[in-house]
Simulated scan of single mutants.
Amino acid sequence: METKCEVKHGLEGVAVAISSISYVDGEKGELIYRGFSIEDLVEYSNFEETAYLIWFGNLPNENELDFINAMLTKKRELPKNIIRLMYLFPKNAHPMEVLRSVVSVLGMYSSDNNSTFEDAINLTAKIPTIIAYWYRIKNNFSLIHPNEDLKHSENFLYMMFGDIPQEKELFDKSLILHMEQGMNASTFASTVTASTLSDVYSIITTALGTLKGQLHGGANEKVLMMLEEIRTIDYVEKYVNDLILKRKKIMGFGHRIYKTFDPRAKILKKWLNEIKEEIRYYKIALKVEEVVLKNFKGKKIYPNVDFYSGILYNYFNIPKDFFTTIFAMARIVGWTAHAMEYCKNNRIFRPRSIYNGPKNLDYKKIKEVKING
């Protein structure tokens, strides 16, 4: 067995890049985008402005913000051939499978002359359209095409449901929470692809495949499934204790970086608490949090962003199998920002593995191998 280098399973604690995009302090529970706290950004900013900040490193002036808005508006519609293709997909296809596939196909429609940023804008604009169109195709509804008078998040809700809810700003701010989170699994995977100098569509297809996993973006869907199984507050304690006894993961709790409350979870919890009408599953979630914290006291296991995000999406009538696509709709900004940043001083990723298999075996042709019995 080779023992010349140390293995860090899951690359725990291994730095793979230098970045000025975001900073996560896991001990203090802080998340910063380009120097601004996540709390300030969700309070004062919006999707388009924060996207510009993450891409370019500074808040936009009025002309720069108008430019981003105009670019997103111009790029939202899908090619007609792709829409026809989506009608051929099986209706039971998971929305993340559809999103991943359509993003890959979109790469064939991109000009080789496009800059990385142009392709980033193109995908950022089109991902909400892909999600909304699939929701309507899947449910045999007629398509609602983009409205050029609406902003990014408003357009998505409009294309999904045909109207815009009163709490539209809350949905917009929720996208800011998911926009960026340092070198997480999907960002790392997409940066590996970017390091080969592949195209943006391949980069984002890689990211989407990684995000789909239930230990990453798919966790918010699993959280709501858990809350549906629990059904009533009275059943929470038994349900959670059974999971602990069987050593099963409690979805929505724990984080590789955060060793205290995830600041995004705190923000979502605050929003849910401020909505005047009763939010489905919210009281059950509060009880689950209480029981989990009591059982893991002192072990630094707290709710993460996935624990409360699904409850908010459910409030907006978004089906749970679409939750992870909403995550992707926001994280596309962070993925593309990291790809552009890394490639400015690019070096292809080439880690090692430690071999622990046999050596110097004698080769025998199949006819020479004796079959026992």
Rank of each mutant, 00 (worst) to 15 (best):
T3E: 14
V7H: 04
L11S: 13
V16P: 03
Y23I: 04
K28H: 04
I32N: 06
L41P: 07
Y52W: 08
L59E: 07
K75E: 15
L85T: 12
M96Q: 08
M96W: 08
V98W: 02
V98Y: 03
V98E: 08
L99E: 13
Y109G: 04
T116L: 14
E118K: 01
I127P: 08
I127G: 05
N147Y: 00
F161R: 01
P165Y: 02
E167K: 12
L175E: 09
E180T: 01
E180L: 04
Q181V: 02
G182N: 11
M183V: 15
T187N: 13
F188D: 11
S195C: 09
T196Q: 05
L197F: 14
D199W: 03
I203K: 03
T206G: 14
L208I: 15
Q214L: 11
G217N: 13
N220W: 08
T232E: 15
E237G: 06
N241E: 14
N241M: 14
L243C: 11
K246T: 09
K246W: 03
G254V: 04
R264D: 06
A265C: 06
I275P: 05
K276W: 00
E277W: 00
E278C: 01
Y281P: 02
I284S: 05
A285R: 06
E289Q: 13
E290I: 02
L293S: 05
F307T: 09
S309F: 12
Y315N: 06
Y315P: 07
K320H: 12
K320M: 12
I326V: 15
A328P: 12
A328I: 10
M340C: 02
R350Y: 10
S353N: 12
I354R: 14
Y355D: 11
N356S: 12
Y363P: 12
I366C: 01
E368N: 14
